[in-house]
Design a protein around this nucleic acid. Structure first.
Lengths: 203, 203
DNA sequence: GAAAGACCGGACAAATCTGTCTTGTTTTTT
DNA sequence: AAAAAACAAGACAGATTTGTCCGGTCTTTC
């Protein structure tokens, strides 16, 4: 059904644990975490309830496992796509928005699981918030590395700017189902880099 | 407790209907829509269950009413803040990010209710998605009006760019609890305006 | 070949969910 | 003052929730 490769739900499941993870990923991400019941996951996975509670102590632990797996799968796909693209440093850094557009264009695109999870649980759920923070740290680290390679004067601020653009593009694309918001974000990233690198030449 | 004025939950409730709306706003926005039960709303509101179902046919209708009221209250606050700020056109358009920073700085800030609602329900819930679209249309209309007043060549693209920056700043501030992402977004808005207006001078 | 673990199917418990209904009191309107 | 609407308090129904447990089957591993 889905062959995009950025969702854990798309990985062909072999063991019962994988079947549960795959079904839970799909349902959590498409219908929400609270709204998805254990029974619905079991139905979709075709497994027994005892099997689920053998592998996961609670629904909360299953949610954490799904978020972890979704993040890992997505990052492997995302950074893999980035690594496959060549060109000068600047082009490779801006390529994040080209890869984002591919992501947005998938018919099964449901936004960022971490953004969605924080939005749903929000106040008081530190486990979810910390998982989202870890995920975003991976991205920020990569962005900082690229910024350093580019010779950007304020590395942290450039990484923050890219993070804002990425989050904004994700949310806008999720709401409108219009993948071209990735290009809108890309244009702003371009002029941001022009701006900070121009200032560097002046100094 | 909360005096910020941008949340419906902060309006002093008088009638039982308002008490229900206020309690529902707070709980929905802070603990999630699905996770908040009718009984929890009743407890917080101090009203009877029959009263709730006298005013709202179902929980779904209550959610819709809360979203509508939250949107209306927020827009009244937001555009009121913007209207109170003077200065040249450019400054007033960029002031959206100053007002956003005030919003982010409130201890009770829980993100945008519409972003959170779409994130939670996502697939298949057109009512929520359309409510979010209506809300965002208000903002886009205002942004386009400002862009026209500024003499921006591509009004639609500038409005889209601002929308991406606004959504991105909201999400980043919600995740990190760091209001200064509004300033990061503002800087990119500045250079975006510089860029499009410079091109206009060239032509 | 035997032991161990993974898995199925479903009953079961206890709590919680949304929504209805009844009875009676308070408030507002006419 | 009388009629009408709003509200409180809570019982109740029916469905659904998470999580446990039991008995039997299959597959892997040593």
């Amino acid at each position: 059904m889905e062959t995009a490769g950025w969702s854990f739900a798309a990985i062909p499941p072999k063991t019962a644990r994988d079947k549960i993870m795959s079904a839970a990923s799909y349902l959590f991400c498409n219908h929400g975490f609270s709204a998805t019941g254990i029974d619905a996951i079991l139905d979709r996975a075709g497994t027994a309830k005892a099997t689920l509670y053998h592998h996961f102590r609670s629904k909360e632990e299953l949610i954490a496992a799904v978020l972890e797996a979704e993040g890992e799968t997505w990052r492997a796909w995302f950074f893999g796509q980035l690594a496959a693209r060549g060109g000068p440093e600047r082009t490779r850094m801006l390529a994040v928005f080209d890869v984002l557009e591919d992501w947005f264009s998938d018919p099964g695109f449901y936004g960022c699981p971490f953004i969605n999870a924080v939005a749903e649980f929000d106040t008081g759920n530190d486990a979810v918030r910390q998982a989202a923070e870890r995920h975003k740290d991976h991205l920020l680290t990569w962005l900082k590395g690229q910024a350093v390679a580019l010779g950007v004067p304020d590395v942290a601020e450039t990484a923050r700017s890219f993070a804002v653009l990425i989050d904004g593009a994700i949310v806008a694309a999720q709401h409108t189902r219009d993948p071209s918001f990735a290009r809108t974000a890309r244009r702003m990233a371009e002029i941001h880099l022009d701006d900070v690198l121009k200032h560097r030449l002046r100094a």
